[in-house]
């Protein structure tokens, strides 16, 4: 075969001789990456600082008094003052915050200020796996449901299947998630007796038992997320399916399933992935209702319980960890944009 000489390549990467040397470019790239990482970490610190300060300020507004929690009914004024002094509650707010921040910066989140005075980090470490697992399972199930639903819907856009799916997702979204949870409990737990309710089995007690107990709460979470993801993904898929490259893929004989998964899904998933990131972060800290419904010892239960007793040290620690996870999740999501669209990779690099 002849290899014609080609002159129309000026717009591409530039000829090797004109461009800066490879090593110089690599060095510049490494520097830019370092700087980006630095900015990221600085952002993270700023977010954590603001979140902890905000939480502290908010907690001081709540008039639940840990001293009362500790003493219970029928204490003397002197006892009360002594306990308050002991807990440092009479110190100025900023001073207390500075104290807490100083220890937190060293990784010491302190101990609960109300009985039984557990170590805060220990309590978080007990609650966090429950919440993380629920959130991951819930979102994972949502992905599993929403991707095929959205594909099906988008492929038959405007048709009967599409209208049914749209109506379904819309009604799920318009119902509060605890109602869906109640319905599931009533149906699958009370009615059919397939799943337990109000029990939790830790992962180290065996994966099977753990998943068995996690299924219903995760499904409750997954319902709303599925509806949201399906809607977003469907509309982006419909746009993508109009693209020339989809027609081009068909015109070379590729099958529908291949086109859906290999050609259409990735370019259509930006909004869905963004939502996914936000959902994951949000779910880890605030599945309170679901945790309550299923009596699960997760982060939501921990924070609400601590707030009710005025245990600000525990709340502070838990909120800090939740914020950390939130920021980390969204950093991961940002990274995934580079995978979803190679053009982003270049503008970042």
């Amino acid at each position: 075969m002849t290899n014609q000489s080609v002159k129309d390549d000026a717009g591409a990467l530039g000829s090797a001789s004109a461009a800066p040397s490879l090593r110089a470019r690599r060095r510049a790239g490494a520097w830019r990456r370092t700087r980006r990482l630095f900015v990221r970490v600085a952002e993270l610190m700023a977010v954590l600082f603001l979140v902890s300060l905000g939480t502290f300020a908010l907690l001081s507004l709540i008039d639940t008094d840990p001293a009362v929690t500790i003493l219970g009914e029928g204490h003397t004024q002197a006892d009360y003052e002594a306990v308050r002094e002991d807990l440092g509650l009479n110190d100025p707010l900023l001073e207390r915050y500075a104290d807490w921040l100083g220890s937190a910066a060293h990784g010491d989140l302190g101990a609960s200020i109300v009985p039984p005075y557990h170590d805060v980090l220990d309590r978080i470490m007990a609650a966090l796996p429950v919440s993380v697992e629920l959130a991951l399972l819930g979102v994972g199930m949502a992905l599993l449901f929403s991707i095929p639903l959205a594909m099906w819907s988008a492929y038959h856009a405007g048709g009967r299947i599409d209208r049914w799916i749209s109506a379904g997702t819309f009604s799920v979204l318009s119902v509060p998630s605890f109602l869906a949870g109640l319905l599931l409990i009533w149906l699958l737990s009370n009615g059919l007796g397939w799943f337990p309710r109000a029990e939790w089995s830790r992962l180290d007690e065996g994966l099977g038992a753990n998943l068995y107990h996690a299924f219903l709460p995760a499904l409750t979470i997954a319902l709303a997320e599925t509806a949201l993801l399906t809607r977003v993904l469907r509309s982006d898929l419909i746009t993508t399916l109009q693209e020339d490259y989809i027609l081009a893929a068909r015109a070379k004989g590729m099958g529908t399933v291949h086109i859906m998964f290999s050609d259409a899904l990735r370019p259509s998933s930006f909004s869905a992935v963004t939502i996914l990131g936000i959902s994951l972060g949000r779910l880890i800290g605030s599945t309170v209702i679901v945790e309550y419904l299923f009596a699960l010892p997760g982060m939501g239960t921990l924070v609400v319980g601590a707030a009710r007793t005025g245990d600000y040290v525990t709340v502070q620690g838990a909120v800090l960890v939740i914020a950390l996870i939130y920021v980390a999740t969204n950093a991961l999501i940002d990274l995934s944009y580079g995978y979803l669209d190679p053009r982003v990779r270049r503008s970042h690099a």
Binding site: E243, Y245, A248, S262, D263, P267, D341, P342, R343
Partner: peptide, 10 residues
């Protein structure tokens, strides 16, 4: 349009 006939992620 060759700008749109190729999948940008492939």
């Amino acid at each position: 349009d060759p700008m749109t006939a190729l999948n940008p992620v492939k």
